[in-house]
């Protein structure tokens, strides 16, 4: 596999991102490393090619945002909005992720080995997110589709105003948001969980140690009893 190495100490970020935005057929199969990210914002955003990118340290805001097809690995922590609005591909954060990780992501897989901050998977639209640690408050707020797998604990108001996303939690849930409730785990749900644990390097963890949460669907339609709440 052809490997290209960039160093953010000597090459401006815009130049690196422009290289990564080259013709997808030429970039396909390539492996790119980016040294000394030092918390810079917008590293490897908007990729559209099936290549591998390794960010060798801590990334700033919006790393790998809007990703399609690419596999982006961050060998440190990620700032706000990592993999936001991802369409496909995979983003792997080996440290912790700040707020709004995977926000509005429509496809692909986001794996965070450490903790994720608040509002993880907010307005999730179909992607899968696996968090090795715990997530902060208001995670999966208004999540519409996709799966959030939390190996640790969840903060306050988990899954508030949830639509059809699934939330699997192995640890404690501090509190559930409006219209989010525990659901019996069906065979189909279990299969999804087992598959995601395998893909994210957690095949050793039993799916039986998780609880499933989903939407109670009481907020889907207007109900006169709720009129006072609007």
């Amino acid at each position: 596999m052809e490997s290209i190495n960039f160093d953010l100490n000597s090459t401006p970020l815009r130049e690196i991102n422009q290289y990564l935005h080259g013709a997808p057929e030429t970039l396909k199969g390539k492996s790119v490393t980016i040294a000394n990210p030092n918390g810079a914002h917008n590293i490897a955003v908007g990729l559209k090619a099936d290549l591998e990118v390794t960010i060798q340290g801590h990334a700033g805001y919006y790393a790998a945002g809007m990703n399609q097809l690419a596999k982006v690995s961050i060998e440190g922590s990620a700032g706000t909005g990592v993999a936001e609005n991802m369409m496909s591909g995979m983003v792997h954060v080996k440290g912790f992720a700040s707020n709004a990780a995977g926000a509005t992501a429509q496809g692909g897989l986001l794996v965070i080995d450490g903790d994720a901050g608040l509002r993880c998977g907010i307005s999730l639209k179909g992607a899968d997110i696996v968090i090795g640690g715990s997530v902060g408050s208001f995670s999966a707020f208004m999540a519409q589709a996709g799966n959030l797998v939390i190996l640790g604990d969840a903060g306050e108001a988990l899954g508030d105003s949830l639509y059809e996303a699934r939330i699997f939690v192995r640890g404690k849930v501090h509190s559930l948001g409006a219209d989010c409730e525990e659901k019996p785990m069906q065979e189909a749900d279990r299969k999804i969980l087992v598959d995601l644990l395998e893909k994210s390097g957690h095949a050793d963890i039993s799916p039986d140690s998780f609880k499933l949460f989903g939407s109670a669907r009481t907020l889907y339609n207007f109900h006169v009893d709720n009129a006072g709440a609007y």
């Binding site: 030092n38 918390g39 801590h58 700033g60 700040s98 901050g117």
Partner: peptide, 17 residues
């Protein structure tokens, strides 16, 4: 983090939010 990146031996610091 970008303001911490240049501190001496930052690689061995415990970085957290």
């Amino acid at each position: 983090f970008r303001s911490l990146a240049h501190l001496p031996d930052i690689k061995n610091a415990k970085v957290f939010e």
